[in-house]
Design a protein around this nucleic acid. Structure first.
Length: 145
DNA sequence: GTTCTCACA
DNA sequence: TGTGAGAA
C-alpha cells in the first residue's frame, strides 16, 4: 500500500525536467542502452520511480567522469551478474582515481586564484615588497606553477 | 547530444 | 498548436 503512492509515472518531457535532461538526450540515452523506459499502447514512453533512481545513479557516475561508453560497459557487466563484480569494481576504482586527480587539479587552480587575489590585496594595502613578483610570492608560499 | 521532420490529439 | 517519435 505504501508503494501505491509511489506509482507516479512521467512523460518524457516531465522526466526530462525532473532529471535535468532534454527529451532528445533521454532518447539518446535509451538508444545507448542506459535507460529502458516502458511504453504505452500508443508507443509513447513513460518513466517510473525506478527510472528516477537509476538515472540519478547514472548521473553520479557520469558526474565523476565516466563516459557514455564507460556507462555502457558498466551496465553490460551488471547485466551479466555477480561474476562481473571484480570488473565493475575495477572500473569504479579507476573512475575514482581519475576523478580524484581532476579534483586535485581544480583545487590547485583555486589555490592559485586565491594566491593572486591575496597578492593584489597585499599590494594594494602596501603590505608587500614592490619588487616581489607573483612567481616569487608563490615560491615563498611553497605553491607552484 | 542536437536538430529536423512527421504523426497524432 | 503542442507533444512525442524516429532519423540524420
Amino acid at each position: 500500500m505504501a508503494t501505491s503512492l509511489n506509482q507516479k509515472t512521467y512523460t518524457i518531457s516531465e522526466f526530462g525536467t525532473k532529471m535535468g535532461l532534454s527529451a532528445p538526450t533521454l532518447r539518446y540515452y535509451e538508444n545507448e542502452g542506459l535507460i529502458k523506459p516502458q511504453r504505452h499502447s500508443n508507443g509513447h514512453r513513460y518513466y517510473t520511480q525506478d527510472d528516477v533512481r537509476w538515472l540519478k545513479f547514472l548521473k553520479h557516475l557520469k558526474g565523476t567522469g565516466m563516459s557514455i561508453s564507460d556507462l555502457k560497459q558498466y551496465i553490460s557487466w551488471r547485466e551479466q551478474g555477480d561474476c562481473t563484480i571484480p570488473q565493475r569494481l575495477a572500473l569504479l576504482k579507476s573512475t575514482k582515481n581519475n576523478f580524484l586527480q581532476q579534483f586535485a587539479d581544480i583545487q590547485h587552480h583555486l589555490q592559485i586564484l586565491n594566491d593572486k587575489i591575496n597578492w593584489y590585496e597585499a599590494k594594494e594595502a602596501g603590505l608587500t615588497s614592490e619588487k616581489e613578483s607573483f612567481a616569487d610570492y608563490l615560491h615563498r608560499l611553497g605553491h607552484h606553477e
